[in-house]
Every structure is written in C-alpha cells, then in structure tokens.
Design a protein around this nucleic acid. Structure first.
Lengths: 180, 180
DNA sequence: TGCGGTACATAACAAGTGTTCCGTACCTAC
DNA sequence: GTAGGTACGGAACACTTGTTATGTACCGCA
C-alpha cells in the first residue's frame, strides 16, 4: 500500500492496485476495508505513523537546537522522508475534496504545531527567537518548512540536501533577536 | 472548467464533467483537447493565467512594501484567490505523478521566484532585509508564503484574513536586520 | 452551385472503477 | 464432531473513465 502511494500518489490508490501489490484479490481488501473511504483514511493514518517512526529523536537537545532538529526531520533529506512528503502533498488533493478527510488533515496540522510549540517557547525564553505570540511563530516556522518541502519535491536538483539544511539554519539565524 | 477545478479539484476533472458543465457533449471536448493530458495541461495554464490576472499591482510601490504586497497577493484573502490556491495545491498530486507536468510546475515555481527576486534585492539594498544570497531569501519567502497558504486552506477559521496579513507582516519585520 | 474543412453531436468501445454476492476453506469452541 | 464465525478467493454487477469512429450541420471559397 505504501509502495503504491510513493510511486503513484493518491490518484493511483485503488482497491485492485492494493490487492495485486499484495498478491491477493479484491476479496481480501474489501474484507478489511469496507469502502474506498476507509482505505484512504487508513492510508493517511499510515502516512502519519511512518512520519512519527522516521522523526529523528531530539533527546538530549534543548531550545533552538532541538527545534532545528525537529524541523530538519521533516525535510526530504532521505529517500524515506522524500517518499513521506510526496505522499503528504499528494494527499492534499483528496483531503481538500472530502470534508471528512479535510478535518483529519487539519487535525494533523494542529498536532504538528502543538509538538513544535514547547520547543519554540523554550527558544524564546533562551533569547534565540524573538518574543511574541508563540502560536504565530510556530505557524510561521511550520509554513516555512512545508513550503520548502514542496519546492524541494518539484526541484530536487535546485534544492539539494545541504542547501535545505543551510536554508533552515540561516532562516532560524535570521530570526534571532538583535544583540545576540 | 474552472468551476469544476474549484469544486472538485483535479481528481474530479474529467472529459464528461467539462462537457456537461459546458452544456455540450464529449465530442466538443475531444475536438479541442485530443487527450486528457492536453486538458490537464490547459487547466494548469488556466490556473496560471488566473493567478496573473488576480495578482495585485505593485505599481508605485518599492522595496519591502512592494514585496509585502506581492506576497500578500498570493494569500487566500478573497474567494477568488482561495479558489486559485485550492486548485494549485490540488494540482500537485497529478504534477508529482506525471514527469511532464512536474517539469511544468517546477518551471512555474522558478518564474514566481524570478518575479520576486528584484523586489528582494531592492529590499536588501535599502536595508529592510538582511544581506546574503538573494536567491536563498527568495526561496525562503516563497516557502513561508506557500506554507501559510496550505495551512490556511485546511483551517480557514484558525487563519482568518487579518491573521494571515499579520503573520506575513511580522515575519518580514522579524527578518529586518538589527539597528533598523 | 459545388466542395472542403471546421465544429460539433452521437454512439460505441475497451478498460478500469468501487461494490456486492456467493462459495469455501480453516480455525475455534462446545 | 459439529456448529459458527473468520478469512479469504472468485466472479459478477453497475458505473465511470478516456478514446475512437461516424454522421452531419454550417461556413467560406472557387
């Protein structure tokens, strides 16, 4: 199922594609997923699970270093994270078309921002990020990171791994308050 | 055709949908678009045309003010710009799946960045943006803006118009070099 | 007045889609 | 050992998809 998503995107996710990729028939698929919607929902959950699995540990890191690591973990720096991002971006089409899936995607975004928030607050307290509403800063950093992901997916040659890391680092550095 | 894209996204763009929306038959559609690919390509061109049509004029503005206006013009602040953004995000699914469309989308991104570049350079010269590689700054600002667009599309209540503008403005202000 | 090309309508095709139904193994519990 | 539920395989259904072929108006031009 993941192989299909990574190769064809959500547009190529069909009952039969899953069945043949599995070496089975449609009977199996319909047995576990009563409808296409259920299959798509499970695909989204699968994507989030894989995201969490591949999220690099920020153990031992604090403040800005932890934040940078957390954001860098989202960038398409490995084949696996590239696949995940490709699947996510692809899922936005179906997610925007279906109200139920849109709600799921919205909730996922909120969870991501919630996970980033304490790191941002820590960085603010340590003077590495400017003061102000942490929610706004989190939203801005999430926006920057995901926007970078999209550009990198379409032009990987223009945005090689090192440049992505450099852009992230210099962006965080540019946000550092004056006098530090 | 645009009504279909805005309502159903690229997943709902079919020959027959275009025909019935037009009050005609598939014969008309196939007459002007020999294949589905041609139709999709034209849909992408149509999206870019509409984008340019709705891009607010930055005449009379210079430097950071012009840049802010140009970026704000991308944000989903009106029903029309929301539609456009919804279509663009939706197009990323098919664009990532098809190499030819991927190239088109990549080129579009490059054109956007090229249009932003002189404004960024102007802002740098006037001291409103930090020095450094302007291409990097342009990519970062494009990333920020598009990332904000995606979040706003999924959670318009969380990101009302005024907050989007505030986020953009405070982001640009946070990038201002020290001492100004 | 005829002739050719454009602009469709209409229909059919083959392939692919989600879904439903039925049969049948197999395993478990009593 | 037998009843019942689970786990599929296989086939069919109704529908939609892109594509193709055929027919026919209409319009400009010689």
């Amino acid at each position: 199922m993941w192989r299909i998503l990574a190769a064809e995107g959500f547009g190529g996710l069909t009952m039969r594609a899953v069945a043949t990729e599995l070496g089975a028939t449609t009977g199996l698929v319909t047995h576990y997923f009563p409808s296409k919607q259920a299959l798509v929902v499970h695909a989204l959950e699968l994507a989030e699970t894989r995201t969490r699995e591949l999220t690099p540990s920020i153990e031992g890191l604090r403040g800005l270093a932890a934040l940078e690591q957390a954001l860098a973990g989202v960038l398409p720096l490995t084949p696996e994270t590239t696949e995940i991002n490709r699947v996510w971006v692809s899922s936005w089409d179906v997610a925007l078309a279906d109200p139920a899936l849109r709600t799921l995607e919205k909730a996922r975004y909120q969870r991501w921002r919630a996970r980033l928030k304490p790191l941002v607050e820590q960085s603010q307290q340590e003077g590495d990020l400017p003061p102000g509403n942490p929610d706004d800063l989190v939203a801005s950093l999430a926006a920057f990171t995901h926007g970078l992901v999209v550009q990198a997916l379409f032009a990987p040659r223009t945005f090689p791994h090192q440049r992505l890391l450099d852009l992230l680092q210099s962006h965080l550095k540019a946000l550092r308050p004056a006098g530090r």
